[in-house]
Amino acid sequence: MKRKIIEIDEDLCNGCGECIVGCAEGALQLVDGKAKMVKEDFCDGFGDCIGTCPTGALQIVEREAAAYDIEATREHVAQMGDEALKKFDEANAEHEAKEQSEQENPKMSGCPGMQVRMKKADEAKAKAKAATGEISGQVIKSDLEQWPIQLHLVPPTAPFFDGKELVVLSTCSPVASPDVHWRYVRGRSLVVACPKLDKTEGYVEKLSQIMAQNDIPKVIVVRMEVPCCGGLSMMTQQAHAQSGRADLVVEEVTIGLDGELRGTKQL
């Protein structure tokens, strides 16, 4: 049958194993230092593993593949212990809900990070007026105090990093939430990156240099709630480890697709 399934680019895979942790179905394992599919019928094609990959080696494709076998997969996961089985059942419930939603609204199907979402017209207009200052009669100015901001372009020893908290900002966050500037950009230095669409080679190394070579008291990852954005947190964690900065606090802030703050946690 033709269906959605995970495909792994071995040239991009660095063998970190994070995708294996992210796969609740136990469909992946490391073989000779590379992530491999254990059995096609263990992969449900929802792609929870994609957001954990720091190199972009995983993607969802549609091709001829064995049908997903939920009963065989559950038996396979049960061999890994109670926690693994609990994780599987929770993921399965979430996937069933997504599948039901996609059947009811086919336009919302596909990768969560690529789904088209629209606000009600009145709500969108009101927020647009507020963002432009039309309601208050004031023009809202940018809180950005530096340039460049793209991670590819910033020099690790740029003076705007020293002595300030660093924000590692996903590309979509400031568009999704009008609060990002005053809440996270104001008074801080920042770098902007997208773990799904950027060429991320060298990102971990550059981030680790920025952390190691500047007096940065705290790093805040501001990401969207879609799975692919998890790669930004993963790269930041790896950079933190490489920097040798045991004193550095690293937090993750998640922005919902409605622009609201979902939560904050320490990495």
Rank of each mutant, 00 (worst) to 15 (best):
P174C: 12
S136G: 12
A131G: 02
G56P: 03
L58V: 06
T52Q: 10
P174R: 12
P106G: 01
Q237T: 13
C111H: 14
D32G: 05
D162V: 06
F88M: 08
N105Y: 12
C49P: 04
E83T: 07
D82H: 06
D89H: 09
G26F: 07
C229H: 07
T200K: 04
K196G: 08
V168L: 07
Q242S: 08
K164Y: 10
I149S: 03
K218S: 05
K125E: 02
K119N: 02
D89P: 08
V175Q: 00
N105A: 12
E225S: 11
E83S: 02
F46D: 04
E62W: 14
A130S: 12
E64Q: 13
L144A: 01
E123C: 03
V31D: 15
C53D: 02
L58F: 07
P112T: 11
E75P: 05
Q79D: 10
S142T: 10
K129S: 10
R223V: 08
G163K: 05
H95C: 00
K36M: 14
C53R: 00
D258C: 12
A131H: 02
Y184S: 06
I8F: 07
K141V: 03
G51E: 05
C13R: 02
R223W: 08
K218H: 15
R117G: 05
P148L: 11
I5C: 13
G56K: 04
K119H: 09
K125Y: 04
H240Y: 08
N14M: 14
G259Y: 13
G51I: 11
K2C: 07
C43F: 08
F160E: 06
P106H: 14
N92D: 02
V191R: 01
R63K: 15
S243D: 01
Q103N: 11
P106L: 08
L28K: 15
I135R: 04
G259W: 14
G137D: 01
G45H: 05
I255V: 15
K265H: 14
K119R: 15
C111A: 07
P112I: 05
R74I: 13
H240S: 05
G113H: 11
E145H: 04
A57E: 04
Q138R: 10
E10K: 15
E134W: 08
W147D: 06
G202I: 04
A246H: 06
D41Q: 10
I135S: 02
R262N: 14
L261N: 00
G113S: 15
G244S: 07
E252I: 15
K87L: 01
N92S: 03
S109Q: 08
Y203R: 01
